Amino acid sequence: MNVELADERFLILKDRFSMDHAEGRASTKRIDAFGTLAKVTGFLSKPKEDEFELVYRERRLQPFWRLVSAADYVYERTRRYPVAVPAAVETVAAYGQTLTAVDGQITFEGLETCREAVRKESLYDALTRQPDATLSKYLGFEGIAVEADRLQAAAGEETIVVPPVAKAPELIRDALSGVITRIEADRVIEEKIRVEAVELYYRPIYAFRYRRQGKEAVVEFDGLTGDVTTGGATFETYLGKVLDPAFLIDAGVEAATLVIPGARLAEIIVTKGIALARG
């Protein structure tokens, strides 16, 4: 089995908002961030501005993976086709054969030529390794392709580039398993398996940590959709650290040894660098 593997791409999605705008929007959700009790209390007695202290804020680029996998199969197989005939029929002469009717039917035998095509787009949260179809909402935003060793420079000095927990090879294996199928064939004419896109996207998120009455809570602002959520996290431990590009690149080396469900290891040959597909 020949597995064609696209080169990795790294894309930074362009922010639509500023830090000041994000902070203003986040401040409207401060009371919600401290839980239901604080929210109920807030209805009864509006909290004062000086009750909230902004103790930390960050702009970060948070990663997710997009993989597109596909498979094409062409094969032949012999099949028997039962055809119902009237009760009075004893034999039928057709295509140079004389077929005998049994229990009201005759049976043809033919050679089928079959073609199957499977294509799947997979999106993964790069921090949890979990598939997440909701990430598709970010694919419509403008992105800038960058080299792995230029990620931090493109992001800016004050932006945290969060390293992915999930690496490409483990996700490639999962994506391929979704398109490799067992076929019933007497002879396989063509079998092509490929990963058309291996893309690591970085999306902008603003996070603000507030302190109130000795407790702290985080509000996040999505730099693309403008959504404001509570209960998030901050990544200040990565502030000032440069992401090691060696961690990101050359998925093909590790993919060459991957075990794909439904395929025999001896049949797997990885070819790196096919043309990318977007769609």
Rank of each mutant, 00 (worst) to 15 (best):
P63L: 09
A166H: 04
R66P: 02
L61W: 04
A126T: 02
V83A: 14
L111Q: 06
I172Q: 02
R129F: 05
S69Q: 08
E121S: 15
L151M: 07
L61D: 05
T134A: 13
P164Q: 11
V92E: 00
S177V: 09
R115P: 00
T107A: 06
R59L: 14
V83L: 14
V89L: 09
D174V: 07
A94R: 12
R182D: 08
D132T: 06
Q62D: 14
V162I: 15
A87R: 13
D125H: 01
S177K: 13
A153M: 12
Y124P: 05
A71M: 07
L123A: 04
L151W: 05
Y73L: 01
Y81E: 00
Q105Y: 02
T100P: 00
Q105R: 13
E58S: 10
Q62G: 02
L135E: 08
V162L: 15
L127F: 00
E112M: 09
V165Q: 12
V85A: 04
V74W: 01
L151Y: 03
V146R: 14
G110A: 15
V55Q: 11
R60Y: 12
R66C: 05
Y95D: 12
R59D: 02
V146C: 09
R182N: 10
G104D: 04
S122G: 07
S122C: 13
L123D: 06
R59S: 09
V179S: 07
G156M: 05
R80W: 04
R119K: 13
A145D: 14
E158F: 05
R80P: 00
S177Y: 02
A126R: 02
V85W: 02
S122I: 04
V55S: 13
I106N: 01
V85C: 08
E170P: 01
A168H: 02
P82A: 11
A70K: 15
V162T: 12
S122D: 15
I172T: 08
A175N: 07
P86G: 07
V161L: 15
T98Y: 04
V118W: 09
A175M: 05
I144L: 15
E112K: 02
E158R: 10
S136P: 02
A148R: 03
L176Y: 02
S122Q: 11
Y95S: 09
S69K: 05
R59K: 15
F64L: 10
I160N: 07
T181V: 13
R80A: 12
V165S: 12
V118H: 13
V118N: 13
I106E: 03
V165M: 11
T134K: 13
I144A: 14
P63N: 10
A154I: 05
V89Y: 04
E147S: 14
A70N: 10
A126K: 03
L176C: 06
K167A: 10
A166N: 03
P164F: 06
